[in-house]
Simulated assay, not measured.
Amino acid sequence: MSAILLVEDDPSVRTGLELALTRQGHSVTACATGEEGLEHARARRPEIVILDVMLPGIDGFEFCRRVRRTDQMPIILLTARSDNLDVVVGLEAGADDYVIKPVEPAVLDARIRAVLRRAVGGTADRSTYGDLVIDRGALRVSRAGADVHLTPTELRLLLELTRHPGQVLSRSHLLRSVWDHGYAGDSRLVDASVQRLRAKVERDAAAPTLIQTVRGFGYRFVAP
């Protein structure tokens, strides 16, 4: 059973998802506004947040940004549109995944479980790449002696890239291995997460040396 914070302003959608997720065995706290959701997130520390994008007041994008300033709890966005800009903005704001409404409860439950598996996954060893240190056992990353705070998805992405140093990993490979479910070529998840990851682990995200783009193919991790 997972402790879920559901933030959705539509009463019928909120009630339906709350009931369905409860039947799936989760403990659900439901809120109607971003402001209320932030209060619950800070006070109750849920295992995962299911977050509508279009909220009155603080919308889903701003909610993500505020949470990410201090916390790496997993976030799945609920969006009524598959518009590229909405999806990219949400991922860049710090969301780990997204689903398009209307969504089947079983599908949402599968996404929740996949994101939570990513949050606790890892293998035990320690690797050093210049001033970047990855402790796979403790699931901690540091650069120049300072902790690097990564979301579960960013951490899984970094772990996967560093497991294959020098190899080009396609976006489809990363979608399968990092996101743990099949997308039909939706590379936006990969590209947005790589951009966020570079901002945290590269000395200069505009001129990355560790995580390199191989145009037309994907990404590779280059050890110094």
Rank of each mutant, 00 (worst) to 15 (best):
A119W: 00
V107Q: 12
A124K: 08
L175E: 12
V178T: 08
E47T: 08
D147S: 13
A80Y: 01
A184Y: 12
E36T: 11
G216Q: 09
D109P: 04
R44G: 13
A207L: 15
R44S: 12
S82K: 11
D83C: 02
L155D: 04
M73L: 15
K200S: 10
R126M: 11
V28Y: 05
S27T: 13
D71R: 06
A32S: 14
L157G: 03
S82H: 08
G166Y: 10
T128N: 08
R113C: 04
D125H: 12
R118Q: 11
G166L: 13
R23K: 15
Q195N: 13
H173T: 15
V222A: 06
L174D: 01
P152E: 02
L91D: 07
S27A: 12
R203C: 13
T128C: 10
W179Q: 01
T29H: 11
A192G: 09
T123V: 14
S177Q: 15
R220I: 08
G60N: 06
D147T: 14
T209E: 11
A3S: 15
L77S: 01
Y129L: 03
A205G: 10
C31Q: 12
L108C: 09
V115F: 00
L150E: 07
L189S: 06
A114K: 00
D97Y: 00
R126Q: 13
H173G: 07
V178K: 00
G137N: 07
L159S: 06
E36M: 04
D96M: 03
D131E: 15
V148N: 04
R188A: 04
V178S: 03
R215N: 15
I4G: 01
Q24L: 09
M73P: 00
V49M: 04
V28Q: 07
S12N: 15
E18W: 06
K200T: 08
L189K: 06
A93R: 03
V168C: 06
A205S: 10
G145K: 08
S2W: 09
S172R: 13
L51Q: 02
A20K: 05
A95C: 10
G218K: 05
A199Q: 12
A207S: 12
T213R: 14
R118T: 15
V99W: 01
P46C: 05
A192Q: 07
R23Y: 09
H149N: 12
R171W: 11
S177G: 10
V89K: 15
A119G: 07
K200W: 03
A20C: 06
L85V: 14
G185F: 01
V88P: 05
T15G: 14
A114D: 12
V190I: 13
L108K: 01
